[in-house]
C-alpha cells in the first residue's frame, strides 16, 4: 500500500515487515540450500550433514555433469523442441490473428468462438486420444511428436487477434489503397507493430515448452529423446544412493540457471506473459 500511509513506523508496519522477511526466507532458503549442497562432496555430506555450512566447497559435481553426456543431449532436445514450438506458434498465431481481426470470410465469427472454446479444453482431456493417434502415426520419440500438440494451443491466436484489433484500421486501409497485396500489408505494415505481443507470446511459449513435463514424459520414452525436464526427473528416482546428493543438486542448479538468467533479463515480459495468459 503506497497510498494513504502515515510516515511513522507503526506497529502494523512492523508486523508486515516481519511477515515479508519470514516469507522471503522461506522463498530463498530451499534454493540456497540446494546451491550450497551442489558444491559439497558426497562422502563428506553423508558423514556430517552440517558440513554444508563450512568449506571445503568443491566444483567436482559440476565437472561430473560435463563428463556425462546425457544432460547435454537433453538440453539440445529441449532447445529444439522449445524453439520449434515458439517459431511455429508465432507464425500460426500471427497469421490467424490477422485473419480473425482484419479480414472477412464466411463463418469467421463462429470459427473464432470455436477457437476461444479451445482455451477451456485442458490438456488431459485430449491426451489419451492424442497418444493413440501419435502411436499410429509413429510420432512418439520424435521431435515433431513433442512439438506438434503445442501448436494447437488457442492462446496465441487469441492474444494476436486482440493485438491486431487494437491497431488503428486506417493504417492497413491506406496501404490497401496503394494496391498492396493483403499479405504485403500484413507483413510490411502490421506485423512490425505487433513486436511487443510477439515478444510476450514468444517468451511465454518458450518457457512453457522448456518446462513442460507431462506430454514429453508420455511421448518421449527413449532416453536420447528426453527433454531436460523429463531427463532430470528420470535421474531423480534413485536419490541418495547412486549419484549422490551433491551431483543431483548440481544438475538442478545447472538446469535452472539458464532459465533463471533469461528471467533476469526478460522479467517484465515474462510477468506480462504469465499474467496475461492466466487472465485471458
Amino acid at each position: 500500500m503506497s497510498s494513504g500511509l502515515s510516515n511513522s513506523r507503526s506497529f502494523g508496519d512492523r508486523v508486515i515487515l516481519a511477515l515479508v522477511i519470514a516469507l522471503s526466507i522461506v522463498m530463498l532458503a530451499p534454493a540456497l540450500w540446494v546451491i550450497a549442497l551442489s558444491f559439497k562432496d558426497n562422502a563428506e555430506l553423508m558423514a556430517n550433514p552440517n558440513s554444508v555450512f563450512h568449506p571445503p566447497y568443491i566444483i567436482q559435481n559440476y565437472i561430473n555433469i560435463v563428463g556425462t553426456s546425457a544432460v547435454f543431449r537433453w538440453i539440445l532436445n529441449s532447445l529444439i523442441v522449445s524453439i520449434g514450438l515458439t517459431v511455429g506458434t508465432l507464425v500460426l498465431s500471427s497469421l490467424a490473428g490477422y485473419g480473425f481481426a482484419r479480414l472477412n470470410f464466411p463463418g469467421r465469427d463462429i470459427l473464432f468462438v470455436v477457437v476461444l472454446f479451445g482455451l477451456a479444453v485442458p490438456e488431459q482431456a485430449v491426451l489419451v486420444a492424442r497418444h493413440q493417434i501419435f502411436s499410429i502415426l509413429k510420432f512418439h520419440n520424435t521431435y515433431q511428436g513433442i512439438i506438434l500438440p503445442g501448436l494447437s494451443s488457442a492462446f496465441g491466436v487469441f492474444l494476436m487477434t486482440q493485438y491486431f484489433r487494437a491497431i488503428p484500421k486506417e493504417l492497413d486501409e491506406a496501404a490497401m489503397l496503394d494496391n498492396a497485396s493483403r499479405f504485403r500489408v500484413f507483413w510490411k505494415v502490421l506485423l512490425p507493430l505487433t513486436l511487443p505481443a510477439q515478444a510476450t507470446l514468444g517468451i511465454f511459449t518458450f518457457l512453457g515448452a522448456w518446462n513442460d513435463y507431462f506430454w514429453p514424459l508420455i511421448s518421449a520414452t527413449k532416453k536420447e529423446m528426453f527433454t531436460l525436464t523429463v531427463g532430470m526427473a528420470s535421474t531423480q528416482t534413485n536419490f541418495a544412493q547412486s549419484e549422490g546428493i551433491g551431483y543431483l543438486m548440481a544438475q538442478a542448479v545447472f538446469a535452472g540457471a539458464p532459465i533463471f538468467i533469461v528471467y533476469l533479463f526478460f522479467q517484465k515480459y515474462i510477468v506480462t506473459a504469465v499474467s496475461g495468459a492466466a487472465v485471458r
Partner: peptide, 27 residues
C-alpha cells in the same frame, strides 16, 4: 478487407489445421 472472401480464410487455415487435428478431433 471487409468483403467476405474465401481467400481471406487462408490466413487462419494453417492454425485451424492444427487446431482441428490436434485439439478438436482428439477431444
Amino acid at each position: 478487407p471487409h468483403s467476405p472472401d474465401w481467400k481471406n480464410a487462408l490466413f487462419v487455415a494453417p492454425y485451424l489445421f492444427f487446431f482441428v487435428t490436434l485439439l478438436v478431433f482428439p477431444l
